[in-house]
Structure formats: C-alpha cells, structure tokens
Nucleic acid binder design. Sequence first.
DNA 1: TATTCCGATAGTGAC
DNA 2: GTCACTATCGGAATGAG
Lengths: 200, 200
Amino acid sequence: MSYRYALVPYIRAPEKYPNVVLFYDEYVSIIKDAFPKGKVHLLILPRNEETSKQKSQEAFKDEKTRKMLEAYVHQAIELTQKAFDKEWRRIDGDDEKKMKILVCCHSVPSLNNLHIHVLTTDMCGRNMKNKKHYNSFTTDFAIRFDEFPLKEDDFRLQDKGKCESLLKQDLVYNGANYKSSFKKMQAKIHEDFDKIYKHI
Amino acid sequence: MSYRYALVPYIRAPEKYPNVVLFYDEYVSIIKDAFPKGKVHLLILPRNEETSKQKSQEAFKDEKTRKMLEAYVHQAIELTQKAFDKEWRRIDGDDEKKMKILVCCHSVPSLNNLHIHVLTTDMCGRNMKNKKHYNSFTTDFAIRFDEFPLKEDDFRLQDKGKCESLLKQDLVYNGANYKSSFKKMQAKIHEDFDKIYKHI
DNA sequence: TATTCCGATAGTGAC
DNA sequence: GTCACTATCGGAATGAG
C-alpha cells in the first residue's frame, strides 16, 4: 500500500527535494508532478495533516481551507504559465493568446494525500499515456477548484462507481469521438499542438 | 481475401512443392500444415474442385466422398505416427503406447478449400499460440472424421455462432480449468509432455 | 483513478 | 475460426531484515 503515500516526503520535508519542490511554506508545498500529463504539470500539497488526509470533496467544504489555498492556486497558475511560456512560443506570434490552465482534484484519487493538479491543457505531457489519464482531466472526473464546495446532490460526493465509469467513456477531442483509439487521438492532439507551438 | 485460398497451389500443382507435399495422386494432396498445432500436423486436401469448395458438413454427407477418403485418412495417420515416432521416444520405453492422433475438420474453417486435419494430440505444436487454436481442436468445434455424416439436428450444420462461441470457452486441460490463462496451461502441457517424451 | 509488468483481448490488414 | 502486428484492456505487485 505504500505507493499511496508517495507524496508524503514533499509534505513532511519539502526542503530536502529542491529539484522537485518549486515552493513551500508552512501551509503548502508546490511540486512538479513526476508523471506530467500536460507540458507543465504541478501539484499543490496542503501540509496540514488533517487536511491532507481528506478527500478534496470533504476538505473543501471548509471555506477557510479554500480561502487559504486561493493565493497558492494563483501562484501555481503563474508558475505554470511562466514555465510553459519559457519552453513554448506560438508560431503565429500572438502572445496575447495564453495556454489554458486547469486547476482540479480527481474525484477518486489514488494517492492518499490531498493534491491539487495545476496543469496546461495541451494534453501533451510526457506521461499522458492512456484513456484513463486523458479522461481523468477532460471529464467531470476532474473537479475544478472553482466548483468547490460541491452542491449536496453532486454525484461526485457519493458515487465513486459513477466517477470511475467516466474514465472508461469514449475518448473525445475537439468534438470528435475516438472511441478507444488513444494512439490515434494522441497523434491528432500532438499534430494540432505542433501547428500552434514551437519549442524554444 | 486471397489468404482464404492459401491452399489452392497444393491442390492445383502439388508436384511443385515437394518440401510441403508428402503425397499426392489424382484425388488428394497430403501436406504438412505450415502452422502446426501438434508436434506433427498434416492436412488432407481433396483435389476435386466441387468437393474442395464445400464445407466438410456438406461434402461428407456424400458417402462416396467419405469412402474415397478413408484410405487416405489411414495413410495420413500412418505418416503422422511415423513422423512423430521418428522425433520422439517415450522415456518409459513403452513403445506399445502410441500418441493419439486426431482426424477432424473445423466446423467454421477460415480457408475456403476443404481440408482434413490429421495431427498428434500433444497440443505442443510450434504454432499452438492461443485460446482459439487450442479450443479449435479440443472442443466440438472440431468435427471428428468418424462423426460424418452429421445427424440432421447437429448444431454444427447450421449454428455458426454457437460453433464460434466454443472457441471462447474456458481452457480445459486434463480436467483442470485454466479460464483464459493460455500461457499457464501451455506451460503445464509442455511440462507433462517433457515428462513422457524425449527428443531423439 | 500513482506506475509498471505481463498477458489476454480486439481490430487491422494481408492480395 | 489463416497469420502477424499493433494497441487496448485487465489484473497483480509495488514495501522490506
């Protein structure tokens, strides 16, 4: 079971991992996701033990916790934007158009410590490898930070089975249904990305 | 679609393929199966065009056709027995015990030319690679030559769907159910074979 | 839904 | 059920004295 606690070191001793931890204070650590699903993919980890062991659906019922995190979310968004812009430029030169950034929590996390994903929405990360990865960020399986607190009747509060079924649904990109053909969809996604961005 | 006619050359011009054709006359060719599912695996191919294009269920309703083939079946069995004995010896030295030989047709063939399988029942052929291969020789999907002509109510005369479903059933070997674990079953089959036979 | 490894399953293309 | 190739799907292990 210990893989479920892979994030513990960054909460307990962020100072030990300068290559992974971009920022930390007494409340949070902001780290680079070891298996990025977007070109840039960070995680915000609340360091408070009680908060960390809760699911996002529960932890973010508390307004204080949400408010406390807002500033860190904005900070992480800025870090993500800067990291992306440092690596990628639009071919059309229109620097006003910014890569969209997603801030969310998975409705059924696999790691036991609360973590907020902050990632560019290109879906071109090195470790975007399968249908579950893709659907975990493109369906309601992902709970956007601005959706918290969830309404009482939100299925994601109770219905783990329905959440998990979202990961198995057909792959949809740009209005097209790719059924289960992850590789074909990924090829199209990368093709489109390469039409818009060039690496610096 | 032309792969469905892979056997045509051995019917039309058996004299051209001495490395594959073990015997031929005006009625049949007996060839080595290119993808053997037993240690020895031959095919009897009736050369008559009308016969060849029928399914076994139809062709062997005709008694003359069956009778014509009987002698060739016995010949093919002898060839198979000799070829096996030339390569493999029982470790216990009991030469009276003979490897069993199966003579059958597939109820749903993939190749369009009528072919009778004659093979040792060791299930250890070089090309025994998956569940469908195995079930195609160990279930009623295989119609033994001595079952022809089929009774009128035999499902294999009409129900292609039921025939094909037999290929997907659980793997059974020596009374044990291996579900879909082909590799595990195959390991056991080879282990058992190696306990009884040694290569010459 | 952490990854990774292995194996079973499924679709395709073959001329 | 022809094969061979690719890719998808599905389970299990992952720790460690």
